[in-house]
Write a protein that binds this DNA or RNA. Structure first.
Length: 416
DNA sequence: TCTGGGGTCCTAGGACCC
DNA sequence: TCTGGGGTCCTAGGACCC
């Protein structure tokens, strides 16, 4: 059996790059795609110019603004990114039919069968990068290796617009002095645990006794050692092969903390509607409902329950969410976020036995009618009265337009 | 400084049954 | 009256990823 060759492709500063394509006059300036710097948003993507000021994705927008007050803040426009992403994935399938999307801007490609048509691994990677540049005007970084984990580490080594190939024979040498945090799956918490064991580099991790690690990290300990030794999954799953979703949910953070149960329930109602609409679109129903409440101070509680029969419509989902909310909400405490999640999903086509899936005829008719209106006029065109309060205030007429929050240009939120 | 929203996977404790 | 041990299911929470 010949060795596999996996590519990990990562678009460079994708959201920011797309914004720069649409607004070329912003080139060379620090651009931050993310939430309102005066509100509770976070940075989704920072351009490389903004990163020079220490701005990182995941950081609070307010913090990013403090670090880089001259930055141009742009509200994310996901429909724009999805469209370009779709075109890129289509292009990738010209090189191999084994493409696995990880997110809008990331994919694994199994190029084991196509690389032989090219003079080298690098030549194939350059060809793919060039195609993306020609067609979309965007740059990508590619990492190559014998499996997904190695390819992923490789793509992280040389960004942006880079290419790195780590053949199996060179993994140990390349990994030896790299930080354990460079492995995908090792976050701050695992890194801290490893540090207490005296493990800082991937080389040290590869030689660490697996049984000690297993005691501290469970199964994950074994997996980590294997990853550090350069082993990993080789298979790439195309969209058709991808397993069905396991859970679906929506949550939303208030611009200010709220402790009025009626307002909290109003938002829960709106979220229940959105979740059930997605369930219907996907042809799924779920047995487990959970409500999430994040209080002021970030303390988060999740309260859920498995139901006798599975549900799909908001007329079934919301009452359950409401009950769960009343069971767990600590009266009077300010809340920053609420969420509704449905899991233990099953395709409705599998529900042949009538008793397992009792749908009220009225609920179906109502949902179908609402879905039709939303399809034609948009998501906020119709909703339950208790949810509309937020719906109306959130969806301002110009909310689809890119908004500059930068106070030196235009600040719709706070006078200087 | 103060932390979005969409997910997946794993663990641990308690209930319950045999 | 006190007490096992294994297995499964449910629930809550945490770590991590993009």
């Amino acid at each position: 059996m010949t060795e596999k060759l996996i590519f990990h492709l990562d678009m460079d500063q994708f959201f920011a790059a797309v914004e720069l394509l649409h607004q070329p006059h912003l080139r060379g300036q620090p651009v931050i795609v993310g939430g309102n710097p005066y509100g509770r948003g976070i940075v989704t993507t920072a351009s490389y110019e903004a990163r020079r000021f220490g701005v990182r994705s995941g950081m609070a927008s307010s913090e990013a603004f403090r670090l880089c007050p001259q930055a141009v803040f742009v509200r994310p426009d996901h429909s724009k990114y999805c469209e370009i992403s779709r075109q890129i994935f289509q292009l990738l399938r010209e090189f191999t039919d084994r493409v696995e999307p990880v997110s809008v801007d990331e994919a694994y490609l199994d190029v084991s069968d196509s690389v032989w048509r090219e003079p080298s691994v690098e030549a194939l990677a350059m060809k793919i990068k060039q195609r993306i540049r020609d067609q979309e005007g965007l740059t990508a970084t590619i990492g190559a290796g014998p499996n997904r984990q190695v390819a992923k580490v490789a793509s992280g080594m040389n960004k942006p617009d880079g290419f790195t190939y780590i053949p199996a024979s060179r993994v140990a040498e390349v990994y030896r002095d790299m930080a354990v945090g460079d492995l995908c799956g090792v976050g701050p918490s695992t890194e801290k645990i490893l540090e207490t064991l005296g493990v800082r580099t991937i080389g040290q991790l590869a030689a660490f006794p697996a049984d000690i690690l297993r005691r501290r990290l469970g199964k994950w300990g074994d997996e980590l050692v294997r990853m550090a030794q350069g082993q990993g999954r080789e298979e790439v799953q195309t969209l058709d092969e991808r397993p069905q979703e396991k859970s679906m949910g929506h949550e939303s953070t208030f611009s200010e903390d709220i402790s009025d149960p009626l307002l909290l329930l109003g938002r829960l109602h709106l979220l229940s509607e959105r979740v059930s609409r997605r369930l219907r679109t996907a042809g799924l129903a779920g047995y487990v409902v959970a409500v999430k409440i994040r209080y002021k101070g970030f303390e988060t509680v999740l309260h859920g329950r498995k139901l006798q029969s599975c549900i799909q419509h908001e007329t079934d989902l919301y009452p359950v969410a409401e009950r769960l909310f009343h069971e767990s909400y600590r009266e009077g405490r300010p809340v920053r976020l609420v969420g509704v999640h449905v899991s233990a999903l099953i395709p409705t086509s599998h529900l042949i036995q009538q008793e397992l899936f009792v749908i009220e005829r009225d609920a179906t008719d109502l949902s179908t009618a609402c879905d039709g209106i939303k399809d034609r006029f948009g998501e906020s065109a119709i909703g339950f009265a208790s949810g509309v309060f937020f719906s109306a205030s959130r969806h301002r007429p110009n909310s689809r337009r890119t908004v500059f929050y930068n106070p030196f240009r235009f600040n719709p939120l706070k006078p200087l």
